[in-house]
Amino acid sequence: MNIFRLAGDMTHLASVLVLLLKIHTIKSCAGISLKTQELYAIVFATRYLDIFTDFISLYNTIMKLIFLGSSFSIVWYIRQHKIVRRSYDKDQDTFRYVFIVLPCIFLALIINEKFTFKEVMWTFSLYLEAVAILPQLVLLQRTRNIDNLTGQYVFLLGAYRALYILNWIYRYFTEPHYIHWIPWIAGIVQTLLYGDFFYYYFHSWKNNKKLQLPA
C-alpha cells in the first residue's frame, strides 16, 4: 500500500459517500444519472465476487463492503425513496444500457487475463467502470445543469482517477512483475472520459456564473 493508492481509495470512497449523504440530506437527486449509479453498483458487484473467497486484508474487505453498501444505497434512494425518487428526471436520463453493457461483456470474454468466471467478471467490471460515466455525461450535456452535481463529487472522482494512475506508476517501479495491461488501459480510458466530464463541468462553471458548492 503506497500513499497514492491510499489517497486514491479515500477520494473514491469520499466521492461515493458525498453523493449518498447529499441525496440523503437534501432529499433530491436532480442532475444525477440513475443509469450511471446503477452501472457503478454493477461494477462493484461484479468486481468483488472474491470478497468471501480471497482474503487480502481487513482494509480490503471493509472497503469492498462499504463500496457495495453505499453504491446500492444510492440506487435505492433514487428508485425507491418516496421523496427522492420524485426528483429523478427519467425522461432526460435516456442512455441505453445495452450500448454500454454488451460491448463490455463482449470485450471481457475475448480480452482477459484468464478465462474463468471470476476473472471474466472482474475484467468486465473494469471495462464497465471505464464507461459508466457516459449516461451522466449525456445527462449533463442535455440539461446543461451542473448546479445539482456537487463540485465535490466531480473533484473527488477526478482525484481518485489521477491518484490511481500515480499508484500504478509507483508500483510499476517498486514491485517486480507488476504489469497489468487490462486495468491500466481501462483506467486510462476512464480518466480521459472523466476529463471530458470535467471539461463540461468547468465550462458550465465558467459561463454559468454561480455554481453553488455545498458547505
Partner: peptide, 10 residues
C-alpha cells in the same frame, strides 16, 4: 517473484 494471487486493488 511471482505475482500474488487475486487482485489487491479496489
Amino acid at each position: 517473484k511471482e505475482q500474488p494471487q487475486g487482485h489487491d486493488e479496489l
